[in-house]
Amino acid sequence: MAKFSGVWATFEYLDEMSHAVEKIREKGKKPTVLSPCPRHEIDHALGEPQTRLPFISLFAGMLGCLTGYSFTAWTASDWVLPVSGKPIVAIPPFTIIGFELTILFTALFTLAGMVLLGVIDTLRHPLPPAVKKYTRFQRDRFGVVVDCDPAQTQDFEEIFKSYGAEEVHIENN
């Protein structure tokens, strides 16, 4: 695990935490917020960040659709099975396979994309081990982690305290 230097705090109240996040962003830092459930207040405080996941899903859907049509067309041409003089490569029945594979590929790639993007972000914004040992973020507490130089820790500690943080911890390891 990469070395972490910075400050993290726990909050009982969502509004106090959101104001602290806004203040930290004014200082030019990008804090990581931990919460038991998603809240729009957090998104507003963080400046409405957007995920790139839909592009992965769209690509997967198109790939699935293409696979569905081309696979059926290829197998029908490879093993020709004439039925009542109907077209060998028939679009309406193949649409069903195309549709199902669109859904299947989108589902698989969206899951993989979600995990991949999550891993990338976790590597970019590492959490100190002490945060991982604090077991109430999944339950009823909000957390804010700021990655900063040891010289700046004092400033952020004061911001956290002024916004009513429950606990403030300084990490220098």
Binding site: T32, L34, S35, D43, P49, T51, G113, G118, D121, K132
Partner: peptide, 11 residues
Amino acid sequence: WRGTNYQWMHY
């Protein structure tokens, strides 16, 4: 899972 804002965003 840690419940970070990044994870929630993608999730």
